[in-house]
């Protein structure tokens, strides 16, 4: 009996230690607020357009490319990747239509979570207010990620997707992100690291990103940042091949028989 009591006591103590360890973790919401503040806080609301120029490499394969990202408030964006020896892959959101056009598979309209992800990337309003993009943030532990001591914050995105953000314990800047991406081919586990932060107009951006996906490593380095320079809306106009798909979809929707009224 004495042994049992002793064991119970130890278990109780362990439980207390465990509980107090969890209690010591900062709240996910607080950490995300600190992340927003560290990234630039209110200064991020002043950003109305952005142009980023960079290079990317599929390091194992040795395939390289040049890339340009354009974003314009409130929610337009376009990503163009010119892969050497392959051709151009373009993805965009004009505020209404999420699309992709590439030399391999031609034009297509993105739907579901894939489209939601692109909209999230395009939305300026969530820059300073993470709550517009995520329903909840919960701290679940700590991890040494990419050589940095980090908090693990589980995020539930507005479009029903889970992500794990690794926030640096010192700077509160994102050190990494883990997620399962929805693609037309299926669900793909991805891990991203954010490195070499640079400041522009009081806002911090990672100038290097490393994505691990399907045993491959993709390195992206942004070499040019331009903020609040005029970007013509024509940059976000739908390519002809995409417009054809939009028109076809509209025609199909118009032709579809309407459900009889109850």
């Amino acid at each position: 009996m004495r042994l049992l009591k002793h064991t119970m006591l130890i278990l109780a103590m362990l439980a207390l230690v465990s509980t107090s360890a969890v209690a010591e973790l900062p709240k996910g919401e607080d950490l995300m607020d600190k992340m927003a503040e560290a990234s630039g806080g209110e200064k991020m609301t002043a950003i109305k357009s952005m142009k980023m120029v960079g290079v990317m490499e599929l390091t194992g394969m040795g395939v390289k490319g040049d890339m340009i990202l354009l974003q314009k408030a409130p929610d337009k964006s376009k990503t163009e990747i010119m892969m050497h020896g392959i051709g151009t892959i373009t993805q965009g959101f004009n505020g209404e239509v999420v699309w992709e056009n590439n030399i391999l598979q031609g034009a297509r309209l993105l739907e579901g979570k894939e489209a939601a992800m692109m909209k999230l990337q395009s939305d300026f309003s969530s820059n300073a207010d993470w709550r517009k993009a995520y329903n909840s943030a919960k701290t679940t532990g700590e991890e040494n990620f990419n050589g940095q001591a980090c908090y693990i914050v589980e995020l539930e995105a507005k479009f029903d997707a889970q992500m794990t953000m690794l926030l640096d314990k010192t700077t509160y800047l994102p050190a990494g992100l883990k997620m399962i991406a929805d693609t037309p081919m299926g669900k793909v586990p991805m891990e991203m690291t954010f490195e070499e932060y640079k400041e522009q107009d009081g806002v911090k951006f990672p100038s290097k990103m490393v994505q691990k996906v399907l045993t491959q490593v993709i390195e992206i380095s942004f070499t040019e940042f331009e903020m609040n320079k005029a970007i013509d809306d024509a940059e976000f106009a739908l390519p002809e091949a995409v417009q054809v798909l939009v028109d076809k979809k509209k025609a199909e929707t118009a032709e579809a028989p309407k459900a009889p009224k109850a």
Partner: peptide, 17 residues
């Protein structure tokens, strides 16, 4: 923070057969 996600077309490029 602005995030950037790789277009899924890149996935198909990674598969050499």
């Amino acid at each position: 923070m602005k995030q950037f996600y790789m277009p899924s077309a890149i996935l198909a490029l990674m598969l050499i057969l």
